[in-house]
Nucleic acid binder design. Structure first.
Length: 935
RNA sequence: GCGGGUGUGGUGAAAUUGGUAGACACGCCAGACUUAGGAUCUGGUGCCUUACAGCUUGUAGGUUCGAGUCCUAUCACCCGCACCA
């Protein structure tokens, strides 16, 4: 009995008992604060950051940790390389889903958010990340959003000085106004506002503050939202489908509301220039550039026949096509539509506007097959020759871009062409032979015809000439435009940061900084206000401060807290400032930022904006937040489908389904092994399947597969906990990396995880034998062993550095396969391999490190140094091609030059056969690569 | 519509600079060990072929001694588009 227990113990000890090992080391690292990071260090710094998650109720699925594992490996690797590494984690905890959940269940968002965070944390801890949890932040924590509010006030108290291309304080602007008016600083919010110093001083406080509002970086303006009266709430574009609400199918209309904005358009050029300094993928940079959408062109004013005092201003990138303008198109929302519409056309225009009200912007842009529009009855006049041009409205022109009006040149623009054909509008050809009458030709190369004073000119110089003529005549000017719009910053929601703003007589003022944070009041009811204001409007005792002063009732959007969180991680507990200046100077930019492409244009642009403003105001010493960005690909789910014979509870296997009429149903991937359904588990999965019967093929029920987004509703989400439980965190980490390149999207497939698990077990056996215990020796390594080791060092270091983790995992496998073949159990080799492995599989590395009797944690071991001498080869097996086709290989010494190599190749039997006695025309020899013989 | 990405064996993929396509795994096939195997080990495995040969990186062209890689055209799929985060 006693003896039996002893063997059992040894047995337990020496097999790869991953769960025990992992739990032991996770506990140990926690106790020893192994991941605590100091802001004071003589080591070089490295800041490795993940895009922090929104803690959704669904929990983590295997797609989430992909990026986290990638950054964790990099952080651990840098630490081994001697860096002081900041690698924090937190939660982007404000957001709509928690609020919607609250509306449905009455549970307070603060409660559900807390619960979700706790389960996220459990899942994260399971995987063994090296986060410094003492730095955890939550955007919904008052101690955090106090500073979000404070930073908002900095944006509110700033304007963008176009002369200096930087943000300055509002007091500087007021000083300018008092001495010189706004003659040198055109008003970005309203170009028509002009005043002198005297004029400024004559304005009332209300007028002055209204003007300043047009300059502020955080400003109030009117903008349309998707208003759904039946739901009594404002909807996201996502929630509107075909003009009705996704939930309930109620009508949705545009409603104007006064809302906060960030004047990101003023930073458009800086945001473009900044891309030159950062290491993002070209694709990412292109996405941002296209989003910003800088274009050069002109604004052209058209007189309207019979209308005095108003002109139609169009923006065009092709002023040279002015004589090809056959009609103008206004956005249906354009402010002059009502004024210019004739009596006869009134009904048609009103009907059309009614139709457009129900259309989403996406639909308006995407719908090209169906041309819609209405004629206003008005005519504009060509500014050069006075030609009459009919004025139409159409949904394809958007109010928000340019001036909301375009000049249509059907011979040169396909959408204009389609419009002209559909409504039978005359098409003027100004490009000559380049236009075939069948489709538009948007060429910028060629000579203009039918074009008055620019006839015969090349298009590019014509653009310049037209602009200067327009400027001379005062009915146009050169204009640079951006597709990007100012960022809407108000949400009519509860679960977000309250604005630190109060209104006195309708004029907004910053609250006193010392009273921050403006805490989100507790509410029992999350329903919106009567007019669509946020739920806070219902909390009268919070809103009304007495003497007519009231609080802003909107809250900030999701991206408010995430725009600056990377700074707070540096100094998360500071209650004096948002982060200490010296600490920010030390940690500086994020060296590696990992997250999904879905944030390409939202979060990334906003946080770049905030960083630039803070830099301009002197709070930071850098104006780009992220030095290097890597986008992890999305892991799609691999759904499993069962086929139910219609009207029965018989389920037919995939191979036989064509013989029946079936309905396809998703089945939980967790009860399917590969594609084979566990039929017993299926019967217990849901009560309505208890009586299921199966039509099998070869005794098995085979499921269909479908690749789609990982989601609860498709039952294709795989919980990392299940896999960690079964194979261990180290296997899970390595398998996620082994799936493919970090940046590539790929479907999840659990099957392959066995291979990685086998690898770790094989590694374990290099160190320990289940029966004999530790088998590591102190013998001196052989040349072959050293070659394997150093090849691996070189490969792992290179691959880790460039985040090519899938090939690194494969290199570990090759290494362990080779060492196993060599029966290498030598400490000198194995412990170096362990250090290499630490970033990937920290638990097993630490366990074996300790078992070999090392003192101190492997987390801080010395990283192996590659030595060329162990891997240098003297010969190579050259591939030999004849006419580019590989025919044989020959081993030749590496110091052999072209002439000699050619001779050796020609003497080869196989080569001789393929030469068929002919003389070679040419022999191509690339040293160390290949030989090609051309005949 | 605009913008971005991806197409290589049965599957995930590799090939970092134009130089032996398919490394490393999964799966499958055969075998060893075993009371047993969802353990371990050995061998095989792109397609077509008995073999030699031939074919093969979405499709069609092109450049080159040589193309998965460069160029042109084209098809298919995935993602984003401003209030989801």
């Amino acid at each position: 009995m006693h003896g039996q227990r002893l063997t059992f113990r040894i047995h337990q000890y020496m097999e790869y008992n991953f769960r025990a090992i992992e739990q032991k080391w996770q506990q140990r690292w926690k106790e020893t604060h192994a991941y605590r990071v100091s802001n004071n260090s003589s080591k070089p710094k490295c800041y490795v950051l993940d895009m922090f998650p929104y803690p959704s109720g669904a929990g983590l699925h295997v797609g989430h940790p992909l990026g986290y594992i990638a950054s964790d490996i990099y952080a651990r690797y840098k630490r081994l390389k001697g860096f002081n590494v900041l690698h924090p984690m937190g939660y982007d905890a404000f957001g709509l889903p928690a609020e919607q959940y609250a509306l449905e269940t009455g549970q307070h968002p603060a409660v559900t958010t807390e619960n979700n965070i706790n389960s996220f944390r459990d899942q994260l801890d399971n995987i063994g990340f090296c986060y410094d949890w003492e730095r955890e932040i939550r955007t919904s924590d008052p101690a955090y959003y106090k500073w979000t509010q404070w930073l908002f006030l900095q944006l509110f108290d700033s304007w963008f000085n176009r002369k200096l291309s930087k943000a300055q304080r509002i007091t500087d602007l007021v000083n300018i106004f008092e001495t010189e008016g706004n003659a040198n600083h055109e008003c970005p919010g309203d170009r028509n506002i002009r005043f002198s110093a005297e004029g400024w001083k004559g304005f009332s406080e209300q007028d002055q503050r209204e003007i300043l509002m047009h300059y502020r970086i955080a400003f109030l303006a009117y903008a349309e939202v998707n208003w759904c009266a039946e739901l009594g709430t404002v909807l996201a574009n996502d929630e509107v489908v075909n003009g009705v609400s996704e939930r309930g199918g109620f009508p949705v209309v545009k409603k104007k509301m006064r809302q906060w904005f960030l004047r990101i358009t003023e930073y458009a050029d800086r945001l473009l220039e900044g891309l030159e300094q950062v290491s993002f993928s070209e694709a990412m940079k292109d996405m941002q550039r296209n989003w910003i959408g800088k274009s050069q062109g002109a604004e052209i004013s058209f007189e309207i026949e019979g209308v005095q005092g108003e002109k139609l201003v169009c923006y065009t990138t092709r002023p040279d096509t002015i004589f090809g303008v056959d009609f103008l198109v206004l956005a249906p929302e354009h402010e002059l539509v009502d004024l210019i519409t004739t009596h006869e056309q009134r009904q048609a225009i009103d009907d059309y506007k009614q139709y457009v009200q129900s259309r989403s912007e996406r639909e308006r842009m995407a719908e090209v097959k169906q041309v819609t529009g209405a004629f206003t009855g008005a005519y504009a006049l060509n500014p050069f020759n006075g030609r009459q041009i009919p004025v139409w409205i159409s949904e394809y022109v958007l109010a928000g871009y340019g001036t909301g009006a375009i000049m249509a040149v059907p011979c040169g623009d396909q959408r204009d062409f389609n419009f002209a054909k559909h409504f039978d509008i005359h098409i003027t050809n100004i490009v000559g032979d380049a236009y075939n009458g069948e489709e538009a030709n948007p060429t910028k190369e060629g000579k203009l015809v039918n074009s008055d004073f620019i006839t015969g000119m090349d298009m590019k110089p014509a653009m310049e000439l037209v602009i200067s003529e327009l400027e001379k005549r005062g009915n146009g000017k050169r204009q640079i435009n951006f597709k990007m719009r100012d960022a809407g910053f108000s949400r009519q929601r509860y679960w977000g940061e309250p604005f630190p703003i109060i209104y006195k007589n309708g004029i907004p003022y910053a609250v006193d900084e010392t009273t921050l944070p403006v805490e989100l009041p507790h509410v029992e009811n999350y329903k919106p206000g009567a007019e669509g204001e946020g739920p806070l409007a219902n909390v009268r005792e919070w809103v009304e401060l007495g003497d007519g002063t009231i609080r802003e009732t909107n809250t900030m959007p999701g991206y408010a807290g995430s725009s600056w969180y990377f700074l707070r991680f540096m100094d998360p507990k500071n209650d004096q400032v948002f982060a200490d200046r010296n600490v920010m100077d030390y940690w500086n930019q994020v060296d590696l930022y990992i997250g999904g492409t879905e944030h390409a244009v939202g979060h990334l642009l906003y946080s770049r904006l905030w960083t630039k403003v803070l830099f301009d105001l002197g709070f930071l010493s850098f104006d780009e937040p992220y030095k290097k960005l890597v986008n992890q690909g999305m892991i799609t789910g691999s759904s499993r489908i069962v086929y139910r014979v219609r009207g029965t509870h018989q389920f037919v296997s995939a191979g036989l389904k064509d013989k029946y009429e079936t309905d396809e149903l998703h089945v939980d991937v967790n009860i399917v092994d590969g594609v084979e359904l566990d039929t017993e588990a299926f019967k217990h999965w849901r009560s309505d399947y208890t009586n299921a019967e199966f039509i099998l093929e070869n005794g098995k029920y085979i499921c269909g597969t479908l690749s789609e987004k990982m989601s609860k509703r498709y039952f294709n989400a795989v919980n990392p906990n299940t896999l960690v439980e079964k194979y261990g965190a180290d296997t899970f980490r390595m398998y996620e990396m082994f799936l493919g390149p970090v940046e590539q999207s790929k479907p999840w497939e659990t099957k392959g995880i066995e291979g990685v698990h086998r690898f770790l077990k094989k590694l374990w056996r290099l160190f320990a034998d289940e029966q004999k215990g530790l088998v590591v020796t102190n013998d001196a390594p052989t040349a072959d062993e050293l070659k394997t080791l150093h090849k691996t060092i070189r490969k792992i270091e290179e691959d880790t550095e460039r985040l090519s983790y899938n090939t690194a995992v494969s290199a570990f496998m090759v290494c362990v396969n080779e060492l196993s073949d060599l029966k290498c159990h030598k400490k000198a080799v194995l412990e170096q391999v362990l250090v290499l492995l630490t970033p990937y599989a920290p638990h097993v590395a630490e366990e074996l490190w300790q078992l070999m009797g090392n003192s101190g944690s492997i987390l801080d071991a010395a990283y192996p140094v590659f030595e060329q001498q162990y891997v240098t080869e003297s010969a190579k097996e050259y591939p030999v091609s004849v006419n580019g086709k590989l025919r044989t290989t020959i081993v030749i010494n590496l110091d052999v030059e072209a002439d000699e190599a050619g001779k050796i190749a020609l003497a080869n039997e196989v080569v001789q056969k393929w030469l068929e006695g002919k003389e070679p025309k040419k022999i191509i020899f690339v040293k160390g690569k290949m030989i090609n013989i051309v005949i």
